[in-house]
């Protein structure tokens, strides 16, 4: 991950063990598929605590880690790196549908 992307705000993320789906840790210490519900650590020390907490709750997920995010106006959380943006919002092109016979 690029170095200059370690902002002050961080969330904890992982992939769910049973199906690999991207999840974030919420304030209640549960894993959620919604980034907007993720617990946000607002300075370095809080980040460490968040990561420890994520690791303690890691039974149903794989290898938790911290993701640098920014808070946009209105409190919307957005990952800084492209990789994490794609993890959060999915493919950046339209995958073909099962019943499709032609591409658009």
């Amino acid at each position: 991950m690029a170095k200059n992307l370690s902002g002050d705000l961080q969330v904890a993320s992982a992939n769910r063990l049973s199906d690999g789906v991207v999840v974030w840790l919420n304030d209640a210490g549960e894993w959620t598929t919604r980034l907007d519900l993720a617990a946000v650590a607002r300075e370095g020390r809080a980040g460490e605590i968040l990561l420890q907490r994520a690791r303690a709750e890691a039974f149903s997920v794989i290898d938790p880690f911290l993701v640098a995010v920014i808070e946009e106006e209105g409190g919307v959380i957005e990952p800084l790196s492209l990789r994490e943006k794609i993890r959060a919002s999915g493919l950046t092109f339209d995958a073909i549908a099962a019943e499709a016979v032609r591409y658009a």
Binding site: A95, I96, V101, Y103, A104
Partner: peptide, 17 residues
């Protein structure tokens, strides 16, 4: 590789076809 498609992808219907 039809124009503009993700290279190498095929849908279930295409595979059956």
């Amino acid at each position: 590789k039809p124009a503009g498609a993700p290279p190498g992808d095929a849908s279930a219907v295409q595979m059956e076809g």
